[in-house]
């Protein structure tokens, strides 16, 4: 894996743009096509590209398994937590209008947080599945 100089250089050049595009899709989903699901997949694709070219070990350093496991649960909890928060401040479950003084502002905030939760969970699950598959193959190869 260490001899593909062109691949390594191109991947290094591409990584910031993939991440930037993921962020754009994540937070611009309110105004154009996109949202948490798509952004999560783009992030995951970036990390998988990194893992394919620089190896699992280095990718594991960037995104340790603990953080991934944490992220899988964090996204769902963020989504559900927004709903619980709405109930606490006096609205219905997942009724974002009560989250700020202005209902429109509350809706905007709620949707942003919920999409962020979706993005975190999708990224973590996709990268986790890929890492688990790849690591399983490695350990199988050792035996």
């Amino acid at each position: 894996m260490h001899s593909y100089l062109v691949l390594r250089v191109v991947a290094k050049l591409l990584m910031p743009f993939i991440m930037l595009f993921g962020l754009y899709v994540q937070f611009h989903g309110d105004f154009g096509p996109g949202g948490g699901f798509q952004a999560g997949v783009i992030f995951a694709a970036g990390f998988i590209l990194y893992a394919l070219i620089f190896g699992l070990k280095d990718a594991g350093k960037v995104l340790p398994r603990g953080i991934l496991r944490f992220g899988i649960a964090l996204g769902v909890l963020l989504f559900a937590g927004v709903g619980v928060y709405d109930m606490l401040v006096g609205g219905k479950y997942l009724d974002y209008s009560v989250m700020a003084q202005d209902p429109v502002h509350g809706q905007h905030l709620g949707i942003l947080l919920v999409e962020l939760g979706v993005g975190i969970t999708v990224t973590s699950v996709m990268v986790m599945v890929f890492f688990t598959f790849a690591r399983h193959r490695q350990t199988k190869g050792d035996d």
Partner: peptide
Amino acid sequence: EKTGIPNVVTSVLASYRGYDTL
């Protein structure tokens, strides 16, 4: 108007159909 979000798909997905997305 209600959600202040121009992309209708996002407003339906995350707000009107929040339960489904969850």
